[in-house]
Design a protein around this nucleic acid. Structure first.
Lengths: 193, 193
DNA sequence: GTCTATACGAAGATAGAC
DNA sequence: GTCTATCTTCGTATAGAC
């Protein structure tokens, strides 16, 4: 075995730690200064490295921000892995997100860039994310209905789309007005079933 | 009466026409090149004026884009003024938006900037828009339920929030995947009532 | 592999001439 | 009302030190 990317000694160790440090600190900068002000130079300053170094680890500023989102998204999903029921699962996700407005803002901002032409990596990320979450949600709904002996009254893929749209849309409303009750409003959808 | 802003003669006439021309052409540039590529210089080129002149009419690039959205939003609302029933009204709105993806993208992009700190004008616009649409929607729902002799089973403000969130979220999903059926999915919410 | 220094072009914004 | 010139900051690319 060579001194490859995950070796405990070897020169790559520093790089792996550095990469993680960049991901962590970038979110800090986003939280403290907002996304627009999170320039490569601002991130570099916060870490104590030149802004050029950041592009040694990530292809572009957009790619870095997207990687921050991807990592946090994976962690957030894992934290909910113990919850089986759909609506408690959604409610826990909403409550966790409420603790991290910077992440929600990052999600929203990158989602907006994804609908723009020419941002293929962001578009691919969100298109794939929507597709997999939709499949996961509709599958859970189907299983739950079957377990309770009922048969679906609506297209479950459409219900899944509705839940995702409501979740994203309510998070945006919540960012503008913290009085919005995301979990409570999502729960209204339960009646459709 | 002086030669004020709306006078038919007077030196302001050219300015008023110019301002309108800028608003119209900006949306064209957005439609053809995307929002990110819609720089002040690109807009100026499309009209045949310098980018500096644009800032004589609008405070900033953001203010210009927001004004384009505000104007189109007003026109779109007026076009639906003949429809009384809530869900047909929503469906017509969705169908109209489907004809103008550039507007939907502009809406989404500016909404994302509004959740960022320091964008007070965008934040104010969307906060106010959400507030008024929510009030309008819940009022319509209340009137409709009363007319059919039913009493609401859910908090109608919450239902209105859900409808708005679903509408915005589904438009985003639609921008990423044109197979999404916005109107059909919104109609699912009808069952909550 | 890791990192700095530097340069380039484009962007939003401002000031002042005409 | 409009333009040009200029300032600052940005993302990105490259060259090279260690």
């Amino acid at each position: 075995m060579s001194k490859g990317q995950t070796g405990a000694r070897g020169p790559y160790v520093k790089g792996v730690q550095r990469r993680q440090e960049i991901l962590d600190r970038t979110l800090d900068v986003v939280a403290h200064r907002g996304i627009e002000a999170t320039s490569l130079r601002a991130i570099g300053e916060a870490i104590g490295i030149s802004h050029g170094t950041l592009l040694h680890y990530f292809e572009s500023r957009e790619a870095l921000l997207l990687e921050v989102l991807r990592e946090r998204d994976t962690i957030a999903q894992a934290a909910l892995s113990g919850i089986d029921q759909v609506f408690p699962w959604l409610e826990s996700g909403a409550n966790n997100n409420a603790k991290d407005p910077a992440m929600v803002a990052l999600y929203t901002t990158l989602l907006a860039t994804a609908v723009e032409a020419g941002n293929e990596s962001a578009r691919a990320f969100f298109a794939e994310r929507f597709k997999s979450v939709r499949a996961d949600l509709s599958g859970r709904l189907r299983a739950e209905l079957a377990a309770s002996g009922r048969h679906p009254e609506a297209d479950l893929d459409q219900v899944a789309s509705l839940i995702m749209a409501a979740f994203d849309g309510l998070q945006i409303q919540w960012l503008l007005d913290r009085d919005i009750d995301i979990a409570g409003t999502i729960r209204l959808i339960e009646r459709v079933l």
